[in-house]
Structures are given as structure tokens and as C-alpha cells.
Computed example of a mutant assay.
Amino acid sequence: MKVLLVDDSGVMRKIIARGLNSLWVDDVVEAADGVEAVAKFGDGEGFDLILTDWNMPNMNGLELVKTIRGGGHKLPIMMITTESEKAQVMLAIQAGVNDYLVKPFDQDTLQQKLERVLPCPANA
């Protein structure tokens, strides 16, 4: 399982990556903002999921989602952010986000959200 993890906080990327690795995600590619994420995403080959923060410099998470969806890519995208107002959640969903996880969160919540957007290899 290969995930593109996008967050401007290096500490948050490490925390989320560690959580993903303790589940069934074995390859986490990190990016510090949407611009770096688009470059690392390339043609999207091999990625199973994008996890992105909303508030980042250069290109925010919402712009990243619109860019990925604008390229015709259908892979799941989950927004992981402190933005929890209903209007924000609706904007993200309208842009093409498959699910939404509000920070802070625990490992069980991360696992539940992942299982909603991806098939767990242990259950396959």
C-alpha cells in the first residue's frame, strides 16, 4: 500500500506516517505542501491514497485536491486537518475528498477512516 502524505508540519507527517506503518501501509511518500505533492505524485502510478492537510503554504490541501481531481485521478483522498466547520467539510467534499479526519485524532480513528476508503489487506 502506497500513500502520499502531505502536511507542512514535519512532526505531524512523522506521527501520521508512524500510525500508517503500524497498520497495513508499507510505503509512505511525504510532501511538505501541495506543490511538492504534485511533483511527487507525477502520473499517480502506484499510489493508493492521498492524505493531505488543508492549511499549507504554496498550495493548500483544497487546491491540491482540485488539481488531482482535475487530472482525472480517482484514487481516494482524505483530508486531515484542524478545519472542522461544516462549511469547510462541505467545500472539501465538493472538491473531491473521499473522507475527512479532524486533528487531533487517535490511532483507532485513523484506522477506521482508512478502512472506509481502502480495503484492508488483512480483510481481503
Rank of each mutant, 00 (worst) to 15 (best):
G61N: 08
G71D: 07
G70F: 11
G70I: 07
D33M: 02
V28D: 08
I50Y: 10
E45V: 12
V29H: 11
G71C: 09
V65H: 01
A39E: 15
D43I: 10
N58Y: 13
G70L: 08
A37R: 05
V35C: 02
G34A: 03
T52Q: 09
A37Y: 07
V35W: 00
R69F: 11
L49G: 09
E63V: 04
W54A: 03
L62E: 05
T67N: 12
G44P: 14
K40M: 07
I50P: 06
G70E: 06
M59R: 13
G34I: 00
G44F: 15
G71F: 11
G46N: 13
K66M: 13
M56E: 03
A32Q: 13
N55E: 14
P57R: 14
F47V: 11
G61A: 05
P57I: 02
D48T: 12
F41N: 02
D48W: 09
K66G: 00
I50H: 08
N55T: 10
D33H: 15
E45R: 15
F47K: 07
G42K: 11
G46V: 12
L62I: 15
D48H: 15
L64I: 08
G46Q: 14
P57T: 08
L64G: 03
M59D: 02
V65T: 14
N55S: 14
V28C: 13
N60Y: 02
G34S: 02
N55G: 01
V29R: 13
E36C: 00
K66S: 07
M59S: 04
E36K: 07
A37E: 03
L49V: 13
T67K: 14
A37C: 06
K40C: 01
E63M: 13
L62W: 01
L51K: 10
I68K: 03
G34D: 00
D43T: 13
G72W: 12
W54H: 08
P57M: 05
A32K: 14
D43M: 09
L64H: 07
E36H: 05
L64E: 06
V29P: 06
D53S: 05
A31F: 14
N60S: 02
E45G: 13
R69A: 04
L62M: 10
D53Y: 08
A31Q: 11
E63C: 03
T67P: 00
V38L: 15
L51E: 04
E30K: 10
D43C: 06
K40D: 01
D53F: 05
F47Y: 15
K40E: 10
L64N: 07
R69M: 06
N55M: 15
L49N: 10
F47M: 11
F47C: 11
N58M: 11
R69K: 11
V28E: 07
T52L: 08
V35D: 01
G42Q: 12
G42C: 09
I50L: 12
L49W: 11
A39W: 00
G46I: 13
M59Y: 08
F41S: 02
D43S: 14
V29M: 12
V28L: 11
I68R: 03
I68T: 04
E30H: 07
